[in-house]
Simulated scan of single mutants.
Amino acid sequence: MKKTIICSISMKENIDQVVYSSKDKSLPVSERKVRYPICAFLEKTMESNDELEVIILVKKDKKDYYKRNIAFFKEELEAVNKEIGAAIEYKIIDSEFEEHQTVHEQLLKDIVAQISDDSHIYVDITYGPKDLPIILFTTLGFAEKFLNCTVENIVYGQADFENGRAVNTRICDMVPLYCLSSITNTIECTDSDKARSMLNLLLTF
């Protein structure tokens, strides 16, 4: 199967390796300690005939921590794939850590350019600045509408922190949140009260 994996890389110096838990049967995870929860998920879902196009999203920090974090991500994914043997191709998209419209627009264009038509998309939004999920949701909407892609999972690694260490780590699927953004686009109404009623009705389905 053709799969597109999109993962935002951490800008932090140190990332804890932890075991992620999951209460969602549709989101299985391995017991491997990882920095990037998408790797624990892929270990349970990848198959040998998969063709993975891995898009690595990088925000350049001033101390270049991102360079080591890219290496960590690749090491984890390769370790997961060692017994599976799927084909993996890496593509790195980097951008400056700046909140300018031109940076956002260029990043959106760069990601769309790297997504193959008809692919199944899996995303890890655990790390990265606040603008990335917004840009990614827009990208995914475009890919579904115009590239005949399917958004399968949007992974987020949730954690509590004690003395600076990640604890109670669990994996969450943010696809329902992504779907919320598309719900409002389906409403066509000029009356505000009626629009609220329509939204409430849609959310009950």
Rank of each mutant, 00 (worst) to 15 (best):
K145I: 05
M1Y: 09
S30P: 09
L52V: 07
S8M: 07
K82E: 08
E76F: 10
K3R: 15
K145R: 14
L132V: 14
A113N: 03
Y65K: 03
G141A: 11
T139F: 06
I38D: 04
Y65L: 06
G85L: 04
I121Q: 06
K91W: 01
A87F: 08
H120E: 15
Y156R: 06
F142R: 09
I154F: 09
S192A: 11
S8N: 05
S10G: 08
E152H: 05
S116C: 02
E43S: 07
K60R: 14
P37I: 04
D117K: 09
R32I: 09
T150Q: 13
S181H: 13
P133K: 13
D50K: 00
V167Q: 06
T169P: 08
A40V: 05
A159F: 14
Q114Y: 07
L136N: 10
L27Q: 12
Q101H: 13
E98M: 13
Q106P: 01
E13S: 03
Q106K: 15
S119F: 06
N14Q: 06
H120Q: 12
K44E: 15
I38W: 00
H104Y: 14
F146A: 11
G85N: 07
K33P: 07
K91A: 04
K33E: 08
Y20A: 00
V58I: 14
N163T: 08
E188V: 14
I84Y: 08
L57D: 00
V54R: 00
I9V: 15
I88V: 15
V151S: 11
E47K: 15
L108A: 13
K145N: 14
K109L: 12
I121G: 08
Y178C: 05
L202G: 00
H120F: 12
N200R: 15
E144Q: 15
P28C: 09
Q114W: 01
A195D: 04
Q158D: 01
G128S: 10
T169L: 01
K63P: 00
L180V: 03
R170Y: 04
R196L: 14
I134K: 09
T184A: 06
L202S: 05
P176H: 09
K59S: 15
E51H: 08
E89F: 03
L52G: 00
H104K: 15
D117Y: 11
S116M: 05
T139S: 09
C172I: 12
V34G: 03
L203N: 10
I15C: 05
N153P: 02
V19K: 11
V58C: 05
V54K: 00
D61Q: 03
G128E: 09
E43Q: 15
I183Y: 13
